[in-house]
Design a binder for these strands. Structure first.
Lengths: 187, 187
DNA sequence: ACCACCATGTAACAGGTTACATGATTAA
DNA sequence: TTAATCATGTAACCTGTTACATGGTGGT
């Protein structure tokens, strides 16, 4: 008799999801987060470690100690059948809305209080970050095996499309700041 | 003798920024948040009220009681010169990185554990939300006076460009899920 | 009479972050 | 020997959320 659907946080589902993919140590989970999920879900490392015992207590993952290997005290975790079921139920349930928090856009919105020069700088910094992100994502895109991990590919492409749109907007933004500058000078 | 640059949270700067624009009540600030900043910065209403006394104590805003007007106990807040300076310093300082939290992309990434049908649904829900957002932003775009509030326009356009990119990606996503489905059926 | 909006918060909680601590192993 | 990587956490803090509470005012 399954207990009434225990509510997990999204972070817990994220970890559970990674452990449904393969058996890993907490350290491995953190690495997996770092080169996949972190663009849209990024728990602190300490949070990942904190989440593991909770999933364990709920019977959604199991722990296997691998102490002998090289003298290290290391534990591997993997999703149990019950954990996989919980994961599938979560995938079918309503999805929490996305959250964006952009100090950059906030500063831009309050641009009245800054000089045009500073606004150009701000936009340039955004452009730089976005280019870095795109470099990273394009490298990742080239590196994934599409038939092996199509879903990773999908999320990478999402990032790429949106990043490209961001760069297009950058030109618009510079142009608009220039216009304002000229208007201010002629006034 | 100004105390050593008090650190404010981004939420505090957001509120300060709105109060530098014009004098408002806490309620007004919440409304202002709701029809402008909320797409990239969205504090809870109670948080806004909690932040006001802190800014007041720091001398960054001043309070003016307007009790007589209609028997209501209402206070208007506005940025002080010191507050405006703090705001300008913040605009010049390093910008915290953007944060995205997308349970949607997380679910997609873990798509292995869901059916193609469910994945189509997931993408459709995203498409719906994105279309709604675009409708809203386009209406807002048409409503702003570009010469009056160019920075708002800039952030709106940002949302529009990225939203459009999202919708383009949606087609890709459906196509890829279809491909997987066919591949699975033929296997 | 009632509902929507104006107006201001309090209380309880949780989820998450940063900084710190510790120690083993391995490659340069 | 030193630095990087593997490996696992603890402690303190805090930002922020949700739910609740309260009351006036204006329109229909």
């Amino acid at each position: 008799v399954a207990a009434d659907e225990p509510k997990l946080t999204t972070t817990e589902y994220a970890v559970l999801g990674l452990l449904a993919w393969r058996e890993m140590s907490g350290y491995d989970v953190n690495r997996a987060v770092d080169n996949s999920v972190r663009f849209f879900w990024s728990p602190a490392k300490s949070r990942v470690y904190a989440v593991l015992p909770r999933l364990l207590d709920a019977g959604l993952i199991r722990r296997r100690d691998v102490g002998g290997e090289r003298g290290t005290d290391k534990a591997l975790y993997g999703a149990t059948p019950s954990g996989k079921r919980a994961l599938r139920r979560w995938l079918l349930a309503d999805t929490d809305p996305d959250l964006v928090r952009s100090p950059f856009l906030l500063k831009l919105f309050l641009g009245d209080n800054a000089s045009p020069t500073r606004l150009h700088e701000l936009v340039d910094e955004y452009a730089g970050r976005t280019r870095d992100l795109l470099d990273h994502l394009r490298a990742a895109e080239a590196a994934v095996d599409a038939s092996e991990d199509p879903y990773a590919l999908l999320t990478i492409r999402y990032g790429i499309r949106r990043g490209e749109a961001g760069l297009q907007w950058v030109d618009e933004a510079h142009a608009l700041v220039d216009t304002l500058e000229r208007a201010a000078r002629s006034a």
